[in-house]
Design a binder for these strands. Structure first.
Lengths: 227, 227
DNA sequence: GTCTATAGCCTGATAGAC
DNA sequence: GTCTATCAGGCTATAGAC
């Protein structure tokens, strides 16, 4: 259940600010509708492509006239914005959870990225919005950037653990190592999206090779530094 | 210069089939216009996104009314089709040329993929059309599939050379090796597209790592087969 | 091969009644 | 918060004159 909120909503969780009697109920109902709109938007993007999202189609499926949506989102771009933020947060959580459940170091890094990959394949459309930027006129908000940084921080930490445990050489303590890792996961996911859109993580020709690919990292960052 | 032709044009190169006097000139002029349309279409896709291609915009830039385009292409999808075919052929040629100029084996494989990558970055929009399938309602024609097979054949050959020369273990003579290689190049290109769209191949944080990534292949397919 | 005209659809967004 | 009505624009595609 996505507990989200409008990008420019002022009241955080439905707290009573104005003088009305019991605004909680109304606010909660409002949040439910917003969640419904976002769920439908995800469906539409999955079926028609990320670019195929339209207010009219969302309204149609919600059983409402298009102008009504403007009470919840000020524009189509605001819907993209909300989808982006919630998606990024969910994906970060998936990666974080995957990492926490595994032995620290290289194993945790692989587990975290696999968990993230699992989420991406289960949320194809949003993942495309997050990482492939298919809507030219849409630019993510600054808040989104902060979440990106958190993901990088998690990966940097896992790489540092791997170095500390002697799984990778000291060269893995570097920005370039993160770029390399993100390139690997991106390649696997892009191939899976393009060629096997229906398969979940772990099936098909591409996603199963990911752990094997990651086990090449010790060859890329050898323990014995060679000039 | 793209010597292309309409997907369903009957006369191959402008040969005189009907009874008119000198149809060559007319046919050549027609091919020129078709080439112009495709060039403009590429520009539009580059600026507005692959999905942003519209007949109206192409007509506007060509200085013509939209209905006139239907004398050259029966539909918008036919334009996508032509762009797809020509693009695939050009990309194949880039890879082939890059391979031919290098020492056979792993070096040729890397050179071919780098040449293809160079082409993709210089033809961003078409490359997206080829490999990322951003237009849900567009499906490439069967001819396109044949060209894909040629690319796979080239890569398979280079991998076999690498095995024969003792650069890779025998396990590289396998479909999975091709999937692995294509995953690596896809990852690098996707990252470059998303994060450094303006940079050519060889600059930035991602494309320079590609050769290094490919030099990990001997670790993935070691010479000494271990149980 | 080019044009005008037009059909018939879609879209995002706003105004204002209830 | 929902609706109707509407604006203003986009688009693909076709018909038919020249």
């Amino acid at each position: 259940m996505a507990t989200t909120r409008s990008p420019q909503a002022g009241t955080p969780t439905g707290a009573a600010v104005d003088g009305s009697a019991r605004p909680d109920r109304r606010a909660r109902r409002r949040q439910e509708t917003i969640g419904e709109i976002l769920d439908i938007a995800r469906d539409v993007m999955t079926e028609e492509g990320v670019n195929g999202l339209s207010l009219a189609e969302v309204a149609r499926r919600l059983g409402v006239q298009p102008p009504s949506l403007y009470k919840y989102f000020p524009s189509l771009m605001a819907i993209y914005d909300a989808l982006f933020l919630v998606g990024q947060r969910d994906n970060l959580e998936a990666m974080s959870r995957g990492m926490a459940e595994a032995e620290p170091g290289l194993t945790a890094l692989i587990a975290g990225l696999e968990s993230s990959g699992r989420w991406c394949l289960a949320n194809r459309a949003v993942a495309e919005l997050l990482f492939w930027r298919p809507v030219p006129s849409f630019n993510p908000s600054p808040e989104a950037f902060a979440i990106s940084m958190e993901m990088v921080t998690l990966q940097r930490g896992a790489l540092a653990d791997a170095v500390a445990r002697g799984q990778l050489g000291p060269a893995a303590n570097d920005e370039n190592a993160i770029y390399l890792v993100s390139t690997l996961i991106t390649g696997v996911l892009t191939q899976a999206f393009s060629n096997e859109p229906e398969l979940p993580w772990g099936e098909g020709r591409f996603t199963p090779m990911f752990p094997r690919l990651m086990r090449l990292l010790p060859a890329a960052f050898p323990l014995s530094a060679r000039a």
